[in-house]
């Protein structure tokens, strides 16, 4: 007796084995040398942040007047500051706050931003108008300016810095997901789900979110280095994290007074910021090219 095709045993198994999404990504990454080096560096710097207390050769905040303003040497690879603190150890400890702010502020921005964008795109009407016009108003502020305003009135500190940077990036995420949701809303499968009686919450969770997630991931990957740069800028201005907690930006801020005597205090943490941001950008580009090959086509050489 013939069985219906769908219940044929082993039907799934007869398909040619498709490499998983991760395997595909890994393969594309292996051919991309800059992205591969960036990934290795990023894993390295994250490990440095986690094990800072074991790696750092000196305590980050203990003064040692005898070692004031020592230039870079084997004992102090990045030199020392006015108080004789080892800049290398401070940079190692600084990676904790700088990376943490980078990651957490992206979550603070992405979650509410994506939610607002999807709701606005799906519900439409007055709700959409109100949400998106408010987002436009926030976008009328340069990013760092909004962060400075929030910190000026709510005070400094790690949590406030994360909030300031995160809140400032909500409108960007909202705009992006709103645009994607508008396109998705018109697709046949969303229409079919709606006709089948699916409610908005189900539509968002089951149909919209999985489809905007790719664009969202790419956008978020590029926002981490931006958050790191803004955090460093806020600390450089002395508005961010409270001293003596070391962050990359705050070490540079402390080095301002002695720039001509001890330029290493500013230069080394600055270079670490630059390399880290570069690594995030290159790795982000690899993700973006993989998830959205069309944009990679735009970069093709003649």
């Amino acid at each position: 007796m013939q069985q219906p095709l769908t219940s044929t045993p082993g039907f799934e198994g007869e398909r040619p084995a498709q490499p998983s999404r991760w395997a595909q990504f890994w393969r594309s990454l292996r051919h991309n040398k800059p992205a591969m080096i960036s990934l290795v560096y990023l894993i390295f710097i994250i490990l440095v942040a986690i094990f800072a207390n074991r790696i750092a050769p000196y305590p980050p905040n203990t003064p040692n007047p005898a070692a004031s303003f020592l230039p870079p040497s084997l004992a102090h690879p990045f030199g020392t500051d006015l108080f004789g603190r080892d800049i290398f150890s401070r940079v190692i400890y600084g990676s904790r706050i700088s990376l943490l702010v980078g990651f957490i502020s992206v979550i603070i921005g992405a979650v509410p931003g994506a939610l607002l964008g999807m709701v606005a795109g799906l519900v439409g009407g007055t709700v959409e108008q109100v949400i998106m016009r408010i987002m436009d108003m926030f976008l009328a502020f340069p990013f760092i300016l909004l962060a400075i305003l929030i910190l000026a009135f709510f005070g400094s500190g790690v949590l406030n810095v994360m909030l300031a940077i995160g809140i400032g990036s909500i409108p960007g995420y909202a705009r992006l997901t709103h645009a994607s949701t508008l396109t998705l809303r018109e697709t046949t499968y969303v229409e079919a789900a709606r006709a089948g009686g699916a409610r908005d919450t189900r539509l968002i969770g089951k149909h919209i979110l999985p489809n905007v997630l790719q664009t969202l991931t790419v956008f978020a990957t590029f926002n981490i280095p931006i958050a790191i740069l803004v955090e460093a800028g806020l600390d450089y201005l002395g508005l961010g994290v409270v001293p003596p907690t070391p962050t990359w930006g705050s070490i540079i801020n402390e080095g301002r007074q002695s720039l001509l005597i001890a330029p290493w205090e500013s230069i080394f943490p600055g270079l670490v910021i630059m390399v880290t941001v570069l690594a995030f950008n290159l790795f982000g580009e690899a993700i973006s090219n993989f998830l959205d090959p069309k944009s990679a086509m735009d970069q093709r050489p003649v």
Binding site: P225, L229, A232, G233, Y236, G249, I252, L259, L260, P263, S266, I267, G270, L271, I273, M274, V275, V277, L278, N281, L282
Partner: peptide, 18 residues
């Protein structure tokens, strides 16, 4: 351009100043 996008503006400022 990759380096310039990654460098914080104050680092470029500090180095050019020095």
């Amino acid at each position: 351009s990759l380096l310039e996008l990654a460098a914080p503006s104050f680092l470029i400022g500090i180095v050019s100043l020095l």
